[in-house]
Structures are given as structure tokens and as C-alpha cells.
Nucleic acid binder design. Structure first.
Lengths: 246, 246
DNA sequence: ATATCAATGTGTATTTTGTACATATTTATT
DNA sequence: AATAAATATGTACAAAATACACATTGATAT
């Protein structure tokens, strides 16, 4: 292995196996959801003394027998019970001292999930949704990871039909616009927003009205099936060696 | 460490240290340059039997005592002698079987360098520039890494003042346009290109003419100093333990 | 010196996209 | 029946992207 990576023999001798396999690799998931007209992220209370009272993202070490891109699916499945989620790799963070207890390089993914989804069960209530806007500080470098993922989400949300992963299948244009406003952190003009979305051609008019609003109901829409693929990180077959915690 | 990542004690016992530290992490550099009016990439002949005759990207294992983002700088410095390069992290590739000799997860960076730079000395002539367009196959998953990095470069080149890293300090608008055409793989309209570049405000007119062309010379420009920062991956201080190969 | 060649340098009309903005309509509620 | 609150919709204007042609300059060849 070391040979493959073009070190010379003399150097190889000097380097113990452990020295190069001394770095752990993890994934961290920035799991976004949308409720109460605000973007939320799923956090867990850090159990490290160094970070007592702080929250952190959901992550886990990557297993030697799973693809990197499979690891965040596993984390999500374990923690939320959901397995049909939108996931996208964003960036890999690897400062020497980013983790207090050792050298861990982490690949960050963001995920978009519909909080009303049936399967969603928050693992032992250890997990809580936090409004993204109110998060000032997280354990490790997780605030930077969160900010990086939020920025990426903002870059992509107007270009690709991904925001719909945060909504139930049927939604009104008002709900959709409020979602976009929550993600982007800006107010949008209703007419211009509708024009833009119409131009994308992502939506299918159901010719059905909302029935749960205390005012004039709006039309309901769905994302056209053609756009329903959950692209991004591929979900390859996992070959777990019975390490799954459930 | 394992505790921090939220495995439970029962599980920890089952997992040997080596099992989790069994994954190596590397960086691979897609080093772009520009010559003969074509985008080139720096490759090395693979010395693995499995890939005999194929070329591969320049990479190395990340050392336990260097930041992830520092590793590609080290690789570039060692291989080309250059240390003031533009580098940007693109994506991390981690399929189980992407590397024939073991589990290696790799973070890909692309780099832009001026091939006419004085310091550039290709390590023992093992390295060669290949026109990107002509590359059909590479060792490992390096063709996919190359494609991913090229795509990212194309996305960024109109938005940020980075293409200039591929040119000598002084250049004509013709050279700049030819460079953009090489990167993007399309012909551009001269007047529209100039208008667009002018609008960006990146360039400073030197009021000096080319003198090495067999036709009417054009004006020479430089990138305004304010835009000369090599952003992207930060170059943190390395704390190497005398492992540098030179 | 003159003619030719090849590239530089420049502007306008058109289309497309983004932005600002107001009123009539529908339904639930009182 | 009146009111309140949201839906639904179009147009004028500005900004950005695109398509397109000709006069000028300097090097070169005769």
C-alpha cells in the first residue's frame, strides 16, 4: 500500500504501520428539517467534558467495510429510522487538532428530511431539533461544518429540485415559498417566486385545495415524479459485519 | 475516541483498535497547467502491475501530524518545487474497492500552476503533462477524480479570478480568452468575452504591448493585486516529524 | 514602398432574465 | 352581510447575455 503511494523503500522502513493508520475517518451529518417556518438541524448533546453543555452533529467512524458515502446513510438510518433520504457530500475537514481525543478527519454531508415522515423516530430522545438561526456554538468544529453545509444548501436550492425533500409530498406554493425564505434567510416576492418556480417546471398541479388552513385555501402541488430521484451520494450496498447498533 | 463518537461500551469491546484505524487517508492532486493552447494535467506512470501502462494522479498518504489541507501543498512542493500555488478541495472518494492494495479514502484537490514558473522542476522526470482532452483512462478511480475536478474548475472559472494562476503575470486578452476556451471547451465571442471580463474589474491595463507575436501586438494586462490571494485551502503550519522526502 | 495578411479593438440591437410593484378574488370568520 | 386574510395574477422597467461586422494596426513578403 505504501509503495503504491510512491514513497521510497528507505522511507517505508522508517514508518511504522500504525503511524500511517493512526488517523481515523468519520462522517458528520448536518440533518436539516423544516418546522415552525424555520430551518432546523438535528443535534445531540456532547458527552465530552471538554464540550459539556454543547451540542454536536451526528457522526460516526467510517467502517472498514463500508463505502464512505454509505456511512452517512447508516448514521441516518440508525438515528432516525429513515433510509430514503437526500444526502450530499459537502467538504472534508482535517485539521490536526479538530477533535480533542485524537486525529479524526471527517467528511461532512448534509441531509434533507421531512420531519413529518412516518418512519422518523428520534433515537432514544437523545436527539433534538434546533433552529439553525439560533445556533451560536457547537462542539468541535461543528459550527463551521454547519455553516459550510448551510452555504452549500443555499447555493443549490434554487438550481436543483431538492428543497422538496423537506416538505410533505403535497404542499401549497405558500408553504414552498416560506420554506425557501427559511433556507435563504430572505423575504421573497410572491409573484416573482411563483414565476421562477413555474419556469423550472418542477411542479405538478394536483387541482386539489388545502383544507387545513384558517383562510382561503391554496392549490396543492407535488414534485413531478421525474425529479424525485435523491441524487448526490450514491447508496451502495453495505457489507456490514454485524456492527450495527439497533 | 470511540466513546466520543457515540458507540456504546459493549460495542467498543468488540472492535479492535486496528479495525477502525484500518483505513488510510490520502490526498490526490489534479494539477492543471496550460500550454500549447490546451489544458494539461500532471500525471505519473503507475507502478502497480494492475495498472501497468496507465497513469495516475499525484498523491500521498496524509501524515498524522499534518492538516489534511496541508498535504496537497506538501505533495506539490515535493513534486514540482512550487509552494505558492492555488489549491482547492473538491471531493472525497471512499469506495471500499477504489484502491487495489487496501482501504484508502482520498480527498481530491485541484491546483492551478503556471507552467512557465521558474521554480517548476518536474521530479526526476517521472512526471509528465498530458492534455486533459486526450486522457481516456487512468489508474484507480483517477479518471473520475479528474472529471470531477475539471467540472468544478469550469464552475468556478467565470465566477472567481482563478484562471490567472495558469498564466504568466502579464498576458494579453487573446491569451486569456484562449485559456478560457481551453478550460471550458467552447469557443467564445471576442467582444462578449472582453465585455464580461471588463465588468468583473479583475484586470489592470499595463499600457504595454506584447512584443513576441508575429502580428499586431495586443495590450498586456495583469491581475489586480487585490485579487491575487490564493484563497481556498488554507496552508497551515506543518509540524512534520522529519518524514519529508527531498 | 507598397500590398497583403492576420490579428486587435470596438458598439449596437435583440433577447432573456431579474426585479419592483397593486388589485381583484376567494374563503373563513364574526 | 360585513370583514379579515390569504390566494392568484400581469406589466413595466432594469440588467445581463447574446448575436453580430468593420475599421485599424503592425509584421511580413514582394
Amino acid at each position: 500500500m505504501i509503495k503504491d503511494l510512491k514513497l521510497k523503500t528507505a522511507e517505508i522502513e522508517k514508518i511504522s504501520h500504525l503511524e500511517y493508520f493512526n488517523i481515523a475517518i468519520s462522517v458528520d451529518c448536518v440533518i436539516f428539517s423544516y418546522k415552525d417556518k424555520a430551518l432546523h438541524v438535528l443535534l445531540i448533546k456532547s458527552d465530552l467534558e471538554e464540550y459539556s453543555g454543547l451540542y454536536s452533529l451526528l457522526g460516526d467512524l467510517v467502517r472498514p467495510d463500508e463505502d464512505l458515502d454509505s456511512a452517512p446513510y447508516r448514521v441516518l438510518k440508525q438515528r432516525t429510522g429513515m433510509d430514503d433520504v437526500y444526502l450530499e457530500q459537502v467538504h472534508t475537514f482535517g485539521s490536526i487538532d479538530r477533535h480533542v481525543s485524537g486525529r479524526v478527519i471527517t467528511t461532512a454531508y448534509y441531509s434533507l428530511i421531512d420531519i413529518k415522515h412516518q418512519k422518523l423516530k428520534l433515537d432514544q430522545n437523545e436527539l433534538h431539533w434546533h433552529p439553525v438561526k439560533e445556533i451560536k456554538k457547537l462542539a468541535f468544529d461543528h459550527k463551521i461544518i454547519l455553516d459550510t453545509c448551510l452555504q452549500r444548501l443555499r447555493e443549490q436550492v434554487m438550481e436543483f429540485p431538492i428543497a422538496f425533500n423537506l416538505l410533505p409530498p403535497k404542499f401549497s406554493l405558500r408553504e414552498l415559498q416560506e420554506l425557501y425564505e427559511a433556507i435563504l434567510g430572505v423575504k421573497l416576492d410572491r409573484r416573482n417566486f411563483r414565476k421562477k418556480i413555474a419556469l423550472k417546471g418542477w411542479l405538478q398541479d394536483l387541482n386539489v385545495m388545502e383544507n387545513d388552513v384558517p383562510h382561503r385555501p391554496g392549490k396543492l402541488y407535488i414534485l413531478k415524479p421525474a425529479f424525485k430521484k435523491r441524487k448526490a451520494a450514491k447508496r451502495s450496498i453495505q457489507r456490514n459485519r454485524s456492527l450495527v447498533i439497533e
